[in-house]
Design a protein around this nucleic acid. Structure first.
Lengths: 336, 336
DNA sequence: GTGAAAGCGCTAACAG
DNA sequence: CTGTTAGCGCTTTCAC
């Protein structure tokens, strides 16, 4: 293994000079720098990460805690992850993967100084991990909103605004009987805040527009989708405007609506809340409110890195929803 | 930050004793051990990962290189990842996430001693990463088979055997006109070996059984599935036995077959090669050959850990395919 | 503009 | 069974 001393010797300088060439923390004369760089190149030198972490108290690694077991919106999760990893690389950081259920992992990586910062996904209203990371010495960013952020920073789509935008779109195109086909019951039970925020926006705007809105939870399975649609059409048969917030169930919801004589884009108007690529991968291109998962991941890293630098105050960033109209929209009764 | 010396002081022993209590590398008297453990507990002591890595040349981290490009077997990839992460934790290791396109990451984590070992997914026949990791000081396990493993260990499903098993099942239930609806063209072009191995097994067994087999590549999109089915039925309209190896396209293949008057489980027999949960999440439960993604991930970690210990020789492990018959199977012409 | 030297916190001989 | 000590490879004062 080649060390910094080997490089120093080869370049005829001291180890500290090599260190400073690498870090750029002090000015080095052009010739010296050139000699050092040549030596580094020639010897294929790479600083030892552990030694560096020990001496500098920086690891160039951030921890990312991901829900790996849910099985549901896995592709969406991967988009968050992709955003986090690529942005972390922009900051010359690597990503240590922690799984959601490994709560002790937080203490391990945190107290053991394995990482410089943390990003946590899938935050519940009353998440037990929040107090843990709030007490850590590393800055943390949450993707999602807990009830009490305890001074931590958060990012997420503004689901409440998304609910309003969806209702506004449907009401604006002539629909007055609306429905939400949403998250699985377990998600609601856990009080994952995005589900509740979406519903709040939906209901607020519906109340203001004189529209009715029925809410159905929906298992992320084919049969769950069928059941949700069937229940919905039994309870509220006049529904013509449907909002779907469940990536996995979406294709089956569309299929079932058609089977029940409500063809999406013709008889009913459907708005999906999901990443754009999911919206486009359906049988017909869906009108959708984009869930910019990758962007959210990137913003999370930006925020955590900013906090690593100075002692910025924490903040919550809610990204504004963008609705794109596509083939699943149809004029409603009031517009015909 | 509390250090090993703080603990030593609090317990009235030397730092090395604390270290040995932690590592178990030498026998400690019960009372001493108790005092040390109490001190650790009381002070909330956690060894500093960097210091440990520097002194012991062990990081307790393994690198996992994952294809994050938003291709569409994302859920399957996540299962591999879940297997790797959980098994790594069993060995008290964490996982550093590297993305496929970040080839320089290999050198970074390897030469920089950031990890003890590597696991790489999605290996192509002539993968440029293989020579890189073959030259690294850390042991590596590949998930998939390159043309030349260069002394590295590999794990994968035995896709060739899977091809044979699928054909045997279909022929055994009366089908003689078979087809494979497989990976997207790009995957084939990259010579990802599993696709080719599956085809080889398929053709071998078909030749031996006097069955015909048509092969269609298939984009992982709804329209790709439709197109593949349409082309297939135009080229080989007598097909009654279909093997599908494309998780994302599977639901749309089934739908299109039905639309074209070939109802899966009635008119045609369909065998999927995919994880069991995917097989069960279709409109009808699919006869399938399980792709035990999580197990493969676990085995990969087992292998790499074994190699970490001693200097075991490298090996290739191909997991035997298991076919489970479900509702998508139907008797063929020869059986009616 | 560059060097010397003191650690960072831990492990693992070496000694007893 | 336990303590002493010499590093592991790097960063960063302090000194010139």
């Amino acid at each position: 293994m080649t060390t910094i001393d080997d490089v120093a010797k080869a370049a005829g300088v001291s180890a500290s000079t090599v260190s400073y060439v690498l870090s750029g923390k002090r000015t080095i004369s052009a010739p010296t720098r050139a000699r050092v760089e040549r030596a580094i190149e020639k010897l294929g030198y790479r600083p030892h990460a552990g030694a560096r972490a020990l001496a500098s108290a920086r690891t160039a690694v951030i921890a990312l805690m991901v829900p790996l077991r849910v099985g549901v919106n896995v592709p969406v999760i991967m988009q968050f992850v992709a955003g986090v990893v690529t942005r972390a690389r922009d900051f010359e950081h690597d990503v240590l993967l922690l799984t959601q259920d490994d709560v002790s992992g937080l203490d391990r990586v945190t107290s053991g100084s394995m990482v410089d910062a943390l990003v946590m996904m899938d935050i519940e209203a009353d998440d037990p991990r929040v107090p843990l990371v709030a007490a850590a010495k590393q800055p943390t960013v949450l993707i999602g909103l807990p009830q009490d952020p305890e001074g931590l920073s958060c990012v997420d789509l503004d689901f409440e605004a998304a609910g309003r935008v969806a209702v506004r779109h449907l009401v604006g195109t002539g629909h007055t009987d609306l429905a939400l086909i949403g998250s699985p019951p377990e998600v609601l039970r856990r009080h994952t805040s995005y589900a509740e925020r979406l519903m709040r926006g939906l209901r607020d705007q519906a109340a203001g527009s004189g529209a009715a809105v029925t809410v159905e939870a929906c298992d992320s399975t084919p049969s769950g989708a069928v059941q949700a649609v069937d229940t919905l059409l039994d309870t509220a048969p006049d529904t013509t405007g449907v909002i779907v917030h469940n990536e996995a169930a979406l294709p089956h919801v569309l299929a079932r609506l058609a089977e029940r004589g409500r063809v999406p884009g013709t008889d009913v108007s459907v708005v999906a809340v999901c990443p754009t690529d999911v919206a486009l991968a359906q049988r017909i291109p869906m009108t959708s409110i984009d869930l910019p998962a990758e962007d959210i991941g990137k913003v999370a890293v930006d925020m955590v890195m900013a906090r690593l630098g100075g002692d910025q105050p924490s903040e919550t960033r809610l990204l504004a929803p963008v609705l794109t109209e596509r083939a699943s929209s149809a004029p409603g009764p009031a517009a015909r």
